[in-house]
């Protein structure tokens, strides 16, 4: 079974040379730490920066330079700043190559819910609805089950939706799955995890074809 860093490490392998990538808050943010150093990638933050770098050294924080998680950051050579309308123009206009975000639930048709638990948590959708409505390459990073042990990969989402039929790929602590017209296709198993364990943890339709390889990380 993978931990959060393991999930991030596996997703980092989906990041290709020349990609502009938007990273959501949580596990997705960790992906930046594992991207190969021999490829050129720029990270976009929806609050208006392309070319995000690592956290600043202590004493060099700048209140005017933060990421979407409101964390202080730095920029790399080639970076740029822009306003929020332009930032979402980049996203809506499909100029960003890859979007990685977290989710509370994903349905077998690619629906995603990640912004609201009625009566419990209403923090808002931030930029998630814009991202999932426009991005063509969306990877969800999440744990396979919730804290109560219930599957987060469902036939149908129970929570209010963020977007419809938009998720293409899911990387969890147990597996890599692709959303197909017939359901979740199992692509890879996490190290030490059996197909049976993944089946048990998946509520939506799981498609298993032939031998399912173990992830390479």
């Amino acid at each position: 079974m993978l931990d959060k860093n393991g999930i991030a490490k596996r997703i980092a392998r989906e990041v290709k040379d020349g990609y502009y990538v938007n990273l959501g808050i949580g596990i997705p943010t960790l992906v930046a730490n594992f991207v190969r150093e021999d490829i050129s990638v720029e990270f976009q933050s929806e609050n208006g920066v392309l070319g995000m770098g690592p956290f600043p050294f202590e004493g060099e924080e700048d209140a005017d330079i933060i990421n979407a998680g409101k964390q202080t950051i730095t920029t790399l050579p080639g970076a740029s700043f822009f306003d929020s309308a332009l930032s979402f123009g980049m996203i809506r206009g499909k100029h960003v190559d890859l979007t990685i975000l977290g989710a509370m639930e994903v349905a077998e048709n690619g629906d995603i819910a990640n912004w609201k638990i009625p009566g419990k948590m209403v923090k808002g959708m931030g930029g998630a609805m814009d991202l999932v409505a426009s991005a063509e390459n969306i990877i969800v990073a999440m744990m396979h089950t919730n804290k109560a042990g219930q599957s987060k990969l469902l036939k149908k989402c129970s929570l209010p939706l963020t977007g419809v039929a938009c998720v293409k790929k899911i990387v969890t602590n147990l597996a890599v799955l692709e959303v197909t017209p017939d359901g979740f296709k199992l692509l890879e198993r996490a190290p030490g995890i059996t197909v049976n364990e993944i089946e048990k943890a998946t509520d939506g339709r799981l498609i298993v074809e032939g031998e399912v390889p173990e992830m390479e990380i």
């Binding site: 309308a85 979402f88 996203i91 809506r92 959708m125 930029g127 609805m129 409505a133 977007g163």
Partner: peptide, 27 residues
């Protein structure tokens, strides 16, 4: 949605009464 919020401001600035966005469709 954040991009819609930004664009609703920009539309007011630029003289557009409204615009179509895919964000939030089906939600």
């Amino acid at each position: 949605p954040q991009g819609t919020l930004a664009e609703k401001c920009r539309a007011a600035q630029a003289g557009f009464p409204a615009f179509y966005t895919p964000a939030g469709y089906g939600t």
